[in-house]
């Protein structure tokens, strides 16, 4: 449960229970893992829960609004009127770059500062309390291009100041500890969830590992995800002995 509002945080019962509702305003979380492993689904529920408790939200994506609405509509909790009435604002990253005045492919370091200001201005105007950036890969590409290693620290300061919670979702196949990115690392985030796809008895299953929570290393227990129109369900991952 959210310690401030008393509402659940992610709208995924087990995850909310496991994390004891320690997602506070001003927090910044990272979901990472291969594509189609459940990151976006939990990100969407994070948005739904925000709207459900009367908060305005922003979803920054890399595809047109129509496509995103289609994906949100896969869940019965979603109401299209939330978009029409402005509870969920959809911002394709390309449109944001349009506001900056450059094409994504041509953006340079100075454009990133402008982009940051555009995002902050939108947050202020819309009185947003929850943000999901999904996928964050285009932004990471931009940051790496501009060598903006302090972007997230700056973002975090703004989130804390404004009491906004943000989830940053990245499609990535390898552990972040491998140092594959100069601009994102677990230490920058308040919590880190790793998603994966595993096979057991020839059945493919999406798994979730809580790698970090609230500044501490979580026990790293794995959970299996079941995603349906009704929402996201979790059960503990039961490993074969030889898996350790």
């Amino acid at each position: 449960m959210d310690e401030v509002t008393g509402k659940s945080v992610f709208g995924v019962e087990k995850l909310d229970n496991l994390t004891l509702g320690k997602v506070l305003p001003g927090s910044m979380g990272l979901f990472y893992g291969p594509s189609s492993t459940g990151k976006s689904s939990i990100g969407y529920h994070f948005i739904f829960e925000g709207v459900g408790s009367g908060q305005n939200t922003i979803l920054i994506t890399n595809e047109p609004a129509k496509g995103v609405i289609g994906k949100l509509s896969n869940f019965k909790q979603f109401k299209e009127q939330w978009v029409e009435e402005g509870f969920i604002s959809l911002f394709p990253i390309q449109d944001l770059m349009g506001l900056v005045g450059v094409r994504f492919e041509e953006a340079g370091p100075s454009d990133l500062d402008l982009l940051f200001r555009v995002i902050m201005r939108s947050i202020e105007d819309l009185e947003v309390k929850r943000i999901v950036i999904d996928p964050g890969n285009p932004l990471v590409t931009l940051l790496e291009r501009g060598n903006k290693v302090f972007f997230f620290q700056r973002l975090k300061e703004e989130l804390v100041r404004r009491g906004i919670s943000l989830v940053f979702i990245v499609d990535i196949s390898t552990p972040l500890d491998d140092g594959i990115s100069r601009v994102i690392a677990p230490y920058m985030f308040d919590y880190v969830l790793r998603f994966n796809r595993e096979k057991d008895h020839s059945i493919s299953m999406n798994t979730l590992t809580i790698e970090k929570w609230g500044g501490t290393n979580h026990p790293h227990n794995d959970y299996v995800l079941d995603i349906s129109r009704d929402g996201v369900m979790m059960a503990p991952r039961i490993r074969r002995l030889e898996e350790g």
Partner: peptide, 14 residues
């Protein structure tokens, strides 16, 4: 069969 034990748990949850 053999079902993953997790899928049995998930059905029980459901």
């Amino acid at each position: 069969t053999p079902a993953s034990l997790e899928s049995i748990l998930m059905e029980v949850e459901r």
